[in-house]
Amino acid sequence: MRFTLNAREVELNVAPLARLLDVLREDCGLTGTKEGCGEGECGACTVLVDGEAVCACLVPVAQVEGAEVVTIEGLGDDHPLQRAFMDEVGAQCGICTPGMILTAITLGPRPSLAKIRRGLAGNLCRCTGYEAIYRAIHRAS
């Protein structure tokens, strides 16, 4: 099967119902996508598929055939949200951070606090109480 991963074509021979999460981490070697619960509750494994946030632990790899997948590695190391998460200490333990940043990207420009809160409701953070994450997203926008 083929799909686009971080702007590069990849072709893989994997079981169709393998989780996208495992394929990314094990077959593609991209470990920035994290597993927190394996049931779509925590959002640590959030990646973008055709621009939309999804939990990679719930997506059968066969269902991204032909799609564009973006992981945290696809943002490089100088994305405004990455810088803002640094500046505002939006990352503490950091395990939720890649998923949090990818979901935040889908909020669009200058999101209101209400929109941020609704948009991030599928990304659990146990360290920050979310406030520093809001500050980071506001700073980046």
Binding site: T71, D77, Q82, M86, A91, G94, P98
Partner: peptide, 21 residues
């Protein structure tokens, strides 16, 4: 001062290595 945290950039880029990585 709120200086940049030592482990900030690795966490924001997904490069930080946790045990499962």
């Amino acid at each position: 001062q709120s200086v940049p945290r030592k482990d900030g950039i690795g966490k924001a880029t997904g490069q930080a290595r946790y045990a499962d990585d």
